Simulated assay, not measured.
Amino acid sequence: MPEGPRNIIEQFFCSVGDVLEAPVVWVREKIVVPNQQNYPWYHQKLRRVPTIDECYTDDVVCQHEANVQYKRDKQVDTEILSILRDRFEDCTMYEAPDHLERCGPLLKKYEEAATNWFIKYGDLGAYHNAKIAYMKQKHRMIWERRHGQVGTGMKEGSPA
């Protein structure tokens, strides 16, 4: 198979494509790539700070950093959930009418992520922080130790 264009029409379209592609390649190579390497805010990677359970009760700075990290993690988890939901909705629209069969794995991933999100962030109210979420996690672990996994009913012989 020859590498170049086969006829004059294909050669014309290759030339038009090169004219349209050249400025884009130039911008990427001359502006975007150099700024990615030198610009500190481009996909900023923040260090992990101690969580709220590792902070002393009188260490306000540590507690503030834990709250900021908690809010950032919540935003990330919410966006991941939104992306999974959008993927499932797109699959449903594209694969209709047999979307239940073809989009089943996406639905399962979305439902699992939604359950995990609700376990961590659900029922906390409008104004919550890392300490409130930590207490929710602690109370859930105590409940599961006493009564079994939440949502499966109580174990036999457990106090009501």
Rank of each mutant, 00 (worst) to 15 (best):
P2Y: 01
P2N: 02
E3L: 08
G4R: 10
P5K: 09
N7F: 01
N7T: 06
N7I: 00
I8D: 13
E10A: 11
E10F: 03
Q11N: 10
F12L: 12
S15T: 08
D18L: 06
V19C: 11
V19Q: 06
L20Y: 12
A22V: 01
P23R: 05
P23G: 05
P23Y: 10
V24D: 10
E29F: 08
E29W: 10
E29G: 03
I31H: 14
V32R: 11
P34S: 03
Q36W: 03
Q36C: 07
Y39S: 01
P40K: 00
W41F: 09
Y42C: 03
H43I: 02
Q44M: 06
L46H: 12
L46F: 08
R47S: 11
R47K: 14
R47Q: 13
R48A: 07
V49E: 03
P50K: 09
T51V: 12
I52F: 12
D53L: 08
E54T: 06
T57A: 15
T57K: 15
D59Y: 14
D59E: 08
D59N: 15
V60N: 12
C62M: 06
C62P: 07
H64L: 15
A66K: 10
A66W: 13
N67S: 02
N67Q: 01
N67G: 04
Q69I: 07
Y70E: 12
Y70C: 15
Y70A: 14
K71G: 10
K71E: 13
K71Q: 09
D73S: 07
V76L: 09
V76K: 01
D77W: 01
E79A: 14
E79F: 11
E79Q: 14
I80Y: 11
L81A: 07
L81S: 03
L81K: 10
S82C: 02
I83M: 10
I83K: 15
F88N: 10
F88E: 09
E89G: 05
D90Q: 13
D90V: 04
D90K: 12
C91D: 00
C91L: 05
T92I: 00
M93I: 06
Y94S: 13
Y94N: 14
E95Q: 13
E95F: 08
A96T: 04
A96L: 11
H99T: 04
H99W: 09
H99F: 10
L100T: 08
L100Y: 03
L100M: 07
E101L: 09
E101G: 12
R102A: 04
G104R: 13
G104C: 08
P105D: 06
L106D: 01
L106S: 05
L107A: 04
K109D: 14
K109R: 09
K109W: 09
E112S: 13
E112H: 10
I119K: 07
K120I: 01
Y121W: 02
Y121V: 04
Y121S: 04
G122S: 05
G122H: 00
G125A: 09
A126D: 13
A126M: 12
Y127L: 12
N129S: 00
A130F: 01
I132V: 14
M135G: 02
Q137C: 05
K138H: 14
R140W: 00
M141I: 01
I142L: 14
I142V: 14
R145E: 13
R146T: 05
G148Y: 02
V150R: 02
T152I: 01
G153T: 00
G153W: 01
M154G: 05
M154W: 08
E156G: 03
E156R: 09
E156Q: 04
G157K: 03
S158F: 01
S158H: 02
S158T: 12
P159A: 15
